[in-house]
Design a protein around this nucleic acid. Structure first.
Lengths: 220, 220
DNA sequence: AATAATTTTTAGATTTACCTAAAAATAAAA
DNA sequence: TTTTATTTTTAGGTAAATCTAAAAATTATT
């Protein structure tokens, strides 16, 4: 049985481990808005419980058990996000904080029934994959919009940034999940990208283009 | 901003206050499965925060603010129970523990939207009234089944005991909310009650009859 | 009213998750 | 390869919510 805080540490380590193999103390501290000294304390505790492997000064990795716990939390978080958007009409930029609380509700039965009630969704409102109850993720093949060349097109299927301002910005531009887009030009000057969406032309900054994920369907 | 624990104390005090005016330390301790000494500590804290009135050795009463907080938690608890039963097909004896966790999720927006999603229910799966967002309860007029005389009838509209064994027992006997019943006999020997429900005869103990709530529609 | 029983509070500790400040280990730069 | 900078850990402390054991206040009983 893990505490709320332990679960948040595991989740944070899980997400950081998607980028680097060995997750460092400072990285965890920054992500969790706490101090490195506090992280060291917690790390020791999680290591003792067999949830992470820890070698002093070398960072940590999740054990099988730790990873499973983390995936369960990710699953719960994303299912609750689907619930909030699909059933309670929240916007995709409004769900994160509430889901952050709901993800810690413990009942397994609850999540299985919620999953069913939602029709076993495979992605959350930001396009992130939802692991099934056996913790398996559907394979996804994303390309960052920034990587598309002029003339190439695809469908918006995810975002790699969940901040409310960013998501509101996309919403305003009509860049929501499922929309078909085509790159009509890439500006030399600032790297901003001109795209065509529903017969309108929209210009987005390089920074924005980096965080939009496209499932490509080649040129056409 | 209250902690999870503070909220539970307020809720407990609120429920105990339905029976006695001044809520005693020991009563709180028993209900919360903790020790009187711990209760004294917490009571002082809640009093300092202006959530309860507290005179040493005299027990406590909720202030306006404290009562409002408690009602908000009761509202959340009962709405979540409706969600679990109506939408996720939980049985009425399975919802308490999960709702006990869900009631502490903080978002006001969430609860308002959940309320709407559920169609603004006025009672929970056990017949308990759900306060509206202005914290007003619908007036309810219950009689205990035990108080009905032979020949009198009514509709089962609530239970005053939420334990899983009790609720499962009622379920097995077909004594669920909305069912029409008529008292056909009261046994002299042990005070058990013979009732007619959907043309079947069922015998229930005095103890069970005490905890079934009836909205009476007189003799007929 | 005095004594006994019960209830409540105080005193002093413990655990969890934090913190600051300083020391130690590792990594980067001269 | 020293020196410097960065990262991480240790040491010692705090606040929240609990505990046990003992003292104090209240209530009940003789």
């Amino acid at each position: 049985m893990q505490s709320y805080t332990e679960e948040n540490y595991l989740k944070t380590i899980y997400h950081l481990a998607e980028k680097t193999t060995n997750v460092q103390t400072n990285a965890i501290a920054e992500q969790m808005q706490t101090k490195p000294a506090s992280v060291t304390d917690m790390i020791k505790k999680l290591a003792e419980k067999g949830l992470i492997d820890y070698v002093k000064y070398q960072g940590v990795t999740l054990t099988e058990t730790g990873k499973n716990t983390a995936i369960d939390i990710v699953r719960k978080h994303r299912l609750w996000e689907v619930f909030l958007v699909d059933k309670l009409n929240f916007k995709w930029d409004e769900v994160h904080d509430v889901a952050e609380e709901l993800e810690h509700i413990k009942s397994v039965e609850l999540i299985e029934r919620l999953d069913e009630f939602l029709g076993f969704p495979r992605t959350d409102p930001h396009g992130d994959p939802i692991p099934d109850k056996n913790r398996r993720f559907a394979k996804t093949q994303f390309i960052k919009l920034i990587e598309l060349k002029t003339g190439e097109s695809g469908t918006i299927t995810g975002v790699s940034q969940h901040s409310s301002p960013f998501l509101k910005h996309l919403e305003k531009l009509g860049l929501t999940l499922g929309k078909q887009i085509q790159v009509s030009d890439v500006t030399d000057f600032d790297g901003s990208v001109e795209i065509r969406i529903s017969d309108k032309q929209v210009n987005i900054s390089r920074e924005v283009a980096k965080h939009i994920l496209i499932s490509s369907n080649g040129k056409n």
